[in-house]
C-alpha cells in the first residue's frame, strides 16, 4: 500500500464523511485509501481492545495490526448488513485471544509439541546424537499421544505448529470456520497436555531441556 497520502496521521478518519460501511464497500473495490480512513477511525479502539486482553502494549499493537490485515483480507466476505465496527472489534478480540493463548501455550503444551517437531525434523539418528535415548523416548511418546488425537484436532495442531499456518489458512484448508479451528487447537492442546502429564516421568521433559519454539510458530493465529 504505497501512497504518500497515507502517511498522514489520523486526519483521514475525521475528514471523510462517509460511513464505515460505505468506506468498507469501497475497500471491496480495492480502495486502499478508504481502508486507511477506517484504520484511522478505529485503530485506537482496536489497540485498546487488544491491550485489555493481552496487557502488553507491543503485543497489543501487533494484534491490532493482525486484526486490520485480517479485516482487509476478509473484505469480500463482509456483508453490509453487519455493522463494520462490531465485526472489526470481534476480529480484534479473537486475534488478541489467539496471541494470549499461544503465549500461554509456550510453557505448557507448545514446548512439548516443539520437541516432537524437533525430533521429527532431525530424524531418530540425529536426535539420538543430540540428546540421547531420552529424546527418542520423548518423540515416541509425543508421537503416540498426537496419533491418538481425533483426526481434526491432530490436523489442526499439525498445520498450526509444524506447518506454521495462520488460523485463517488452516480454516480454508480444513473447510471450516476460524472459530472452529481455534476450538480444535484448544481442545487438542488440552488433550495432549493431559495425556503427557500422565507420562511426564517417562518423557522426562522440563524447562531446562526444552528448546525454544520455532520462529513463527503460531504466528497470526
Amino acid at each position: 500500500m504505497a501512497n504518500s497520502a497515507m502517511t498522514a496521521t489520523g486526519d483521514f478518519g475525521l475528514a471523510d464523511v462517509r460511513s464505515d460501511e460505505d468506506l468498507f464497500l469501497a475497500c471491496r473495490e480495492g480502495d486502499q485509501l478508504a481502508f486507511r480512513v477506517l484504520v484511522d477511525r478505529h485503530l485506537r479502539m482496536v489497540r485498546r481492545l487488544a491491550l485489555n486482553v493481552l496487557g502488553d502494549v507491543q503485543e497489543a499493537e501487533d494484534a491490532a495490526q493482525e486484526a486490520f490485515i485480517a479485516a482487509w483480507r476478509a473484505r469480500e466476505r463482509w456483508t453490509p448488513e453487519a455493522r463494520f465496527s462490531t465485526w472489526l472489534h470481534r476480529i480484534a478480540v479473537n486475534k488478541a485471544i489467539d496471541r494470549r493463548r499461544v503465549r500461554k501455550a509456550v510453557p505448557e503444551s507448545q514446548e512439548v509439541i516443539t520437541r516432537l517437531a524437533d525430533a521429527e525434523v532431525q530424524g531418530p539418528a540425529q536426535a539420538d546424537a543430540l540428546a540421547g535415548l531420552e529424546r527418542s523416548e520423548v518423540a515416541v511418546t509425543l508421537q503416540r499421544a498426537l496419533g491418538k488425537l481425533p483426526d481434526t484436532q491432530r490436523q489442526a495442531l499439525t498445520l498450526f505448529y509444524f506447518e506454521e499456518l495462520e488460523v485463517g489458512r488452516i480454516a480454508d484448508a480444513m473447510g471450516c470456520s476460524e472459530q472452529a479451528v481455534r476450538s480444535l487447537l484448544k481442545r487438542g492442546r488440552q488433550t495432549l497436555k493431559t495425556r503427557l502429564q500422565r507420562q511426564k516421568k517417562i518423557c522426562g521433559y522440563g524447562p531446562e531441556t526444552v528448546r525454544s519454539a520455532p520462529e513463527g510458530a503460531g504466528r497470526g493465529a
Partner: peptide, 11 residues
Amino acid sequence: DMGALADRIAR
C-alpha cells in the same frame, strides 16, 4: 499518535 502504527498496517 497512532500514525506510526497506522502506517505499519498500511504497509
